[in-house]
Simulated scan of single mutants.
Amino acid sequence: MLQVADPRVAQGVADHSDFRKRPLARLIGTLDFLIIVTFGTEQEAERVGHAVRRVHDRVTGPGYSGNDPELQVWVNATLIDAALYVYTEVLGSPSGDLADEYVRQAALVAEVLGCPPDQQPADLASFRRYMDEKIAALEVSDTGREVARAVLWPQRPRWLRPAGGLNRFLTIGLLPPRLREQFDLPWSARDERLLRLLLRTGATGYRLVPGPVRRSPRHLALHGARRRIARRARAHAPA
């Protein structure tokens, strides 16, 4: 939602993404990329980055390009911002103050896609300034609102619709108020109280799970991402 608040990103998604027909495939593909870049080897990160850059070569249109460093910084910044919010505000920095180091390390995601390091916020303070200035300047387009509706009320897969209400509620609640208004999404004081209750409950449950158990899915996620990426590579290989 933050990403498509930028009209150029929204237009690129509307023109080139098949997320309406295959939302889970789109999500899993993005997660596989992030998992490999985060937990895989340097060679794996470069290979998957090269594959995404080739896809982005075709994502062009009036006023936007998938390889535009400015848009790459913004898309990556939305991921960093969400992770920082959960870690610091929801969970209360359970492993200490890692925010500044996280900002520096997470810049690798955009760098792998070809974004020069000197175009990204260098530390936590500059990242906070960047987000504040960017959000204050954004003006959501009609295309952005259309994409947002498709994201929040997906038609497929039908079996996931029961969970859609919770996902929609959390997504709307975590948006900056200025952008929530521009997306024409209603929000009340009662909604805010319920959101805080849900976040506190989730944080409490997280703390009750032993650290080794919380971290164990990382290896399974990496194994699954490698298998799916290899399968997609075979499917698109020349006969």
Rank of each mutant, 00 (worst) to 15 (best):
M1Q: 02
L2N: 10
D6R: 01
P7R: 04
Q11K: 11
A14N: 06
H16T: 14
S17R: 07
F19Q: 03
K21G: 10
R26Y: 15
I28N: 06
G29E: 04
D32I: 06
V37W: 05
F39W: 15
T41S: 15
E42G: 10
E46Q: 14
H50C: 07
V52M: 11
V52Q: 10
V52K: 01
R58F: 12
V59C: 04
P62A: 12
Y64M: 00
G66Y: 03
G66D: 07
N67P: 00
N67S: 11
D68M: 04
E70D: 13
Q72G: 14
Q72N: 11
W74Y: 15
N76W: 00
A77R: 00
A77S: 13
L79W: 08
I80Y: 05
I80H: 00
D81M: 02
D81R: 12
L84Q: 08
L84F: 08
V86E: 01
V90R: 02
P94Y: 11
G96P: 05
D97T: 01
D97L: 02
L98Y: 14
A99R: 09
A99K: 07
V103C: 02
R104C: 05
R104I: 08
V109K: 01
C115V: 04
P116W: 07
P116V: 08
P116Q: 04
D118A: 07
D118P: 01
Q119W: 10
Q120K: 03
Q120L: 14
D123A: 05
D123N: 14
L124C: 02
A125T: 11
S126T: 15
R129M: 10
I135Y: 06
I135H: 00
L138H: 07
S141E: 04
T143E: 08
G144W: 09
R145L: 07
E146G: 05
V147W: 04
A150M: 06
L152M: 06
P154R: 00
R156H: 11
P157C: 10
W159Y: 14
L160T: 13
P162S: 03
A163R: 03
A163K: 03
G164A: 09
G165E: 08
F169I: 05
L170A: 00
L174F: 13
L175R: 03
P176M: 10
R180V: 08
R180G: 06
E181F: 05
Q182P: 07
F183S: 01
F183W: 08
L185M: 09
P186C: 06
D191I: 02
D191V: 04
D191R: 04
R196W: 12
R200I: 05
T201C: 08
T201K: 02
Y206A: 09
R207E: 14
V209D: 07
V209S: 05
V209C: 02
G211I: 12
H219M: 13
A230V: 09
R231Q: 15
R231S: 14
R232E: 10
R232D: 11
R232F: 07
A237V: 06
A237E: 15
P238I: 06
A239S: 13
